[in-house]
């Protein structure tokens, strides 16, 4: 009955489309995440940010949203790794001399590596702010504590730069994979992709940088 669906889901284009869709959904999450986090800068004592964190934490639907995010992340990663392994197999013996023709970008070359760095970063991030947070600790003070340490701030800078590089290719690539290529819009999508990657990276970088260098104390 659903053989057409399994055929599509197993095909190269079907799997690529799922990677693209889950990637776009995760970008959507990042935009909301950054917008919410910006409440951190609303006041000096972090009361607005704490109220925001509490609102999310007290929402009964939170576990459902978290499961959804984890599924998105696992599907995106799992398929991307499978596709990458297939791609390696498709050229089992590489060129002795290799020179790009000019299509590849630093972002496109490093997708799997930046992806792994982002995964490690997300694990660290969850360990910091999701798993270790007790009810009596203010989220704002926890953020300040973790990001004022050199190791903490350094890890966030590395993780966020990897995320930016990943998105510099990921956004435009996902639209092409979904077949959204148009002579009028594709050049704009490219600019938008770089803009979005830059904006999200700089936006999130504000946290480790301002906290570590003491601008927000």
């Amino acid at each position: 009955m659903l053989s057409w669906l399994t055929r599509t889901a197993r095909s190269s284009i079907g799997r690529k489309a799922v990677v693209a869709l889950t990637g776009l959904a995760l970008i959507g999450f990042l935009v909301v995440h950054l917008a919410g986090n910006m409440t951190f800068f609303a006041d000096s004592d972090g009361a607005t940010f704490d109220a925001y964190a509490d609102t999310i934490g007290n929402n009964p639907l939170l576990p459902l949203a978290e499961i959804g995010l984890v599924v998105l992340f696992l599907v995106h990663m799992g398929l991307a790794v499978r596709l990458t392994l297939e791609n390696k197999k498709a050229r089992s013996k590489g060129y002795m001399v290799s020179k790009a023709h000019g299509g590849r970008t630093p972002g496109s070359r490093t997708m799997i590596f930046t992806g792994v760095i982002v995964l490690l970063f997300v694990i660290l991030h969850l360990a910091h702010f999701r798993l270790q947070k007790g009810d009596d600790v203010s989220m704002a003070s926890l953020v300040r504590f973790e990001l004022s340490r050199p190791l903490g701030a350094g890890a966030y800078v590395v993780g966020l730069l990897a995320l930016g590089l990943h998105l510099s290719h990921g956004f435009q690539s996902s639209l092409q994979t979904l077949g959204l290529n148009h002579p009028k819009y594709t050049p704009l999508v490219k600019v938008l992709g770089y803009g979005l990657a830059g904006l999200l990276t700089v936006g999130f970088l504000l946290f480790p940088l301002t906290i570590f260098f003491g601008g927000n104390s």
Binding site: I13, K16, L83, K89, H101, G102, S108, T177
Partner: peptide, 27 residues
């Protein structure tokens, strides 16, 4: 392998076939 939209193909193609054809195939 599977396309990762790096467009080396278009840059190497002697007939300069555009990658919009890949998007059309995906569609």
């Amino acid at each position: 392998g599977n396309c990762t939209n790096e467009y080396e193909c278009m840059a190497a193609c002697p007939k300069e076939i555009d990658v919009s054809n890949i998007a059309r195939m995906n569609r």
